[in-house]
Every structure is written in C-alpha cells, then in structure tokens.
C-alpha cells in the first residue's frame, strides 16, 4: 500500500492541500449548545484518502458536515485549494465537495436513476433536469458502483448494500473532486463493506471518510486521523497512528497488532480493557 497521493495533484502548487481545516470549532444544540469540535487542524492532499476514526459521540459526523460546508463552523476555517470555503455560494461549494451522510436513505418512490440524478442539482438551474447529458452522468456514476443495470429500477427493489451504493453514486454524480463520506459501510456485511471501500479507493477523488472499523480504515486509507474529545488526537499513516497505546487511550480497549500470514498486512485484535460488567 502506498501512503500518499494515489495520483498527481492537479493544483499548481502540490504543497497546497486540497482540503484544509484550521482551528475548526463547532457547537451543536443551538446557541447554548455543547462544543463538539475544538481547534481541529487537518489537511488532505490531492488524491489522498483520509480516514477519520474515533469513539461514538466524538464529533466525526459534525466534523465531516463542517468540512463539506453543510454546517457552518463556530470558529476557524475550511479551505479548498487554499481558498476559504465560507465565501462560496452553496452551488459553487457543491461542485467542489460532494457529501453522503451516515443515516441517509434514498426515497422509496424514486427510481435509482432519479436518486442519482439529484447529484446533478448543483450543475443545472433549479427548474431543469432529466435530459440526455444528465442521463450520461448518471450512468457513469452508477457504473462506478456497478449498478448501471439498475438505473430504471425502483429503489424499493434494492438491498441495503445496493442502496448505500446508490447514495454513493449520487455523490459521484456531483462530479466534485472532493468526496466526504460518513460511515459509507454502515449496516453492511463484511463482504459488502470490503467491496464498497475498494470501490471508493478506485475513484479518482480526494476522499475523507468517517469509519468505525479500525481494521477497515487500516486496510484502505492512506492516512488516518483519530478524533478524540472533539480534537485531533493523532494523524498520520494508519500503522503509525493506530498503535496499541493510542487505541487504549482513545477507545479504552487493548489492541494487539498481528500480521496477516498471507498478505503481511497488520490487523488489530481487541480485548476489553476493563471488566465486562462496566459501562459500555
């Protein structure tokens, strides 16, 4: 596995990160809300796949929403190719960054192609849609997730795994160079988790992905950032970051790194740190 950009940066200056967060802060729950992110610094290079891991409730989803510009930051800023995201119109922003949320479900009374065509929204005026050029973009996006044969099927006829892929295709149809994915493998079995993550790796995009499964993160991500208590606890190549010490501190779990006998890749085995009767 290569740690670093999978393909050359299209930007003039390769030192400028594709997506960068500086001193990012965010509150949830209105004016007297709780601060979930404080002073988050992150940088993602062109073509890189960054995995964001961390315990439940540590602010991963919030961070992804702020990075994608779906939710405003309370402090700090997000930059895309060196220019601040905050000054852009929603439409311009959606052409730069596509996001698929964690608990999203495609509407059941749409066809697969119609769900994916939603991704074309930032590329057309609000009254347009459904022409041949759009259909090509939709088919390309569906082909990338191997569902182009289902374009005219009802969403209802799809399995859970296929629905996640349809939502990913909607994000791809946005044709934005940056892709932000919140738990794309949620509710999928192990085979479909691996298949979907491999699919995402093959895309020629810069990807930020929140992920629960540390082994999956280790297997597919170029770099991993551990989010803990609303800030970045560690950030770097997966095998340097996901150490037993870091996992003990952040997750409260003992991890043993084991080399796979065939591939030589490092996998983590977990044992609970505290007696099992404790809080979960």
């Amino acid at each position: 596995m290569t740690h670093g950009a999978r393909f050359p940066a299209p930007a003039d200056d390769p030192r400028i990160p594709h997506l960068q967060a500086r001193g990012l802060a965010c509150d949830v729950g209105g004016r007297r809300g709780r601060r979930v992110l404080a002073d988050v610094d992150l940088a993602v290079r062109h073509g890189e796949m960054l995995g964001v891991v961390g315990p439940n409730g540590t602010g991963k989803s919030t961070l992804l929403r702020v990075l994608a510009g779906v939710r405003p930051a309370a402090g700090g800023e997000v930059r895309v190719d060196g220019t601040p995201l905050a000054g852009r119109s929603p439409r311009d922003r959606a052409r730069e960054i596509a996001m698929v949320g964690q608990e999203e479900q495609p509407q059941s009374d749409l066809l697969v192609g119609e769900v994916v065509a939603l991704g074309r929204t930032p590329h057309r005026p609000p009254w347009a849609g459904g022409d041949d050029a759009e259909r090509d973009a939709v088919l390309r996006a569906l082909a990338a997730v191997e569902l182009d044969h289902a374009v005219d099927r009802s969403v209802e006829q799809l399995s859970g795994g296929e629905r996640r892929r349809v939502l990913l295709a909607r994000g791809l149809a946005q044709e934005a160079p940056l892709l932000v994915l919140d738990e794309p493998t949620n509710h999928l079995d192990v085979r479909h988790q691996l298949a979907l993550m491999r699919m995402i790796r093959r895309l020629e995009r810069t990807v930020v992905v929140a992920i629960h499964d540390l082994n999956l993160a280790m297997a597919v991500c170029d770099r991993v950032a551990i989010l803990h208590d609303g800030t970045v606890h560690a950030d770097g190549p997966p095998e340097d970051v996901l150490t037993p010490a870091a996992i003990r501190e952040v997750f409260g779990v003992e991890a043993v790194p084991v080399r796979h006998p065939d591939t030589g890749h490092v996998h983590l085995l977990f044992t609970t740190h505290e007696p099992a009767d404790d809080r979960c």
Partner: peptide
C-alpha cells in the same frame, strides 16, 4: 421553476445543503 430544488429538499435538509 424550483422543482429540482424541491426534489433535493424532499431528500432531507442536510442532503439538500450538500447538493448546493
């Protein structure tokens, strides 16, 4: 005149925001 935006809004506020 806003039917494309209404489609996005029907998919959810966060989804609509992500779609610009």
């Amino acid at each position: 005149a806003g039917c494309g935006w209404l489609d996005a809004l029907a998919a959810g506020p966060d989804t609509a925001a992500a779609l610009g």
